[in-house]
Design a protein around this nucleic acid. Structure first.
Lengths: 108, 108
DNA sequence: TCGATTCATCAAGAAACATTGATCAGTTGT
DNA sequence: ACAACTGATCAATGTTTCTTGATGAATCGA
């Protein structure tokens, strides 16, 4: 039981670190901002963010590895979009981090 | 007007990067977890996290520079606690990042 | 005042991350 | 089949971040 709870916390912590790291970069935040309004292919993003293709590819991979975005190949394009599940998880993790978890002996 | 909005977005982005970076490390997440349940001095944290003092000091500084925690010297101790305002800001930023901001021409 | 305690800061080295240009693979139109 | 295009990956380099041990400032009790 203790062990189970411990691993659950470790999992949350791990996921939090993963997500937060993926979002700890301006270019990646800009990508997320773009994707909020719908899926985009890499060339849309290079255009919008005015940056090199391999640089963008690198950052997209970081976001994808974290699970925050998904990709969908179509013809010679690859469309990226936000992963709504991950975003929900992100919000949950922020709540988890924010709210007290004191195994309260006091009356609440 | 455009400029004002642009700088507002830049500010959000900046703050997001700052917060997320501060939270993108396991040790710092553990510190936050500890502080959820009330203020702690550095020696409490070294004890709890079983790690070196200068290492902890380093991570506390990162959190403090990001504004996520505050410190309160008392005698020879320095007590750290979460900054509730920053946590609220963090939640807002996550929402900002999550929700579509399409300057919608369509009927909503 | 002296020694012990708490904590920040610094410098040096190690590790992780980001950027760039080049190359490669897959797709499409001719 | 070929040329043009999209995007991933790689290698080299530069930059940032993390860790460690040492030093120093402030506080406290004896």
């Amino acid at each position: 039981m203790y062990v189970l709870m411990a691993t659950a916390v470790a999992r949350d912590r791990d996921k939090a670190v993963r997500f937060f790291h993926a979002l700890s970069d301006e270019t990646r935040i800009r990508i997320m901002e773009r994707l909020r309004d719908g899926e985009q292919c890499v060339c849309d993003l290079t255009e919008a963010l005015k940056t090199g293709q391999s640089r963008l590819s690198f950052h997209l991979r970081v976001l994808k590895d974290a699970g925050l975005v998904t990709d969908r190949p179509e013809g010679r394009w690859i469309y990226y979009s936000l992963n709504p599940n991950a975003l929900r998880e992100l919000e949950d993790l922020v709540s988890w981090l924010t709210e007290s978890h004191a195994a309260s002996v006091r009356r609440c």
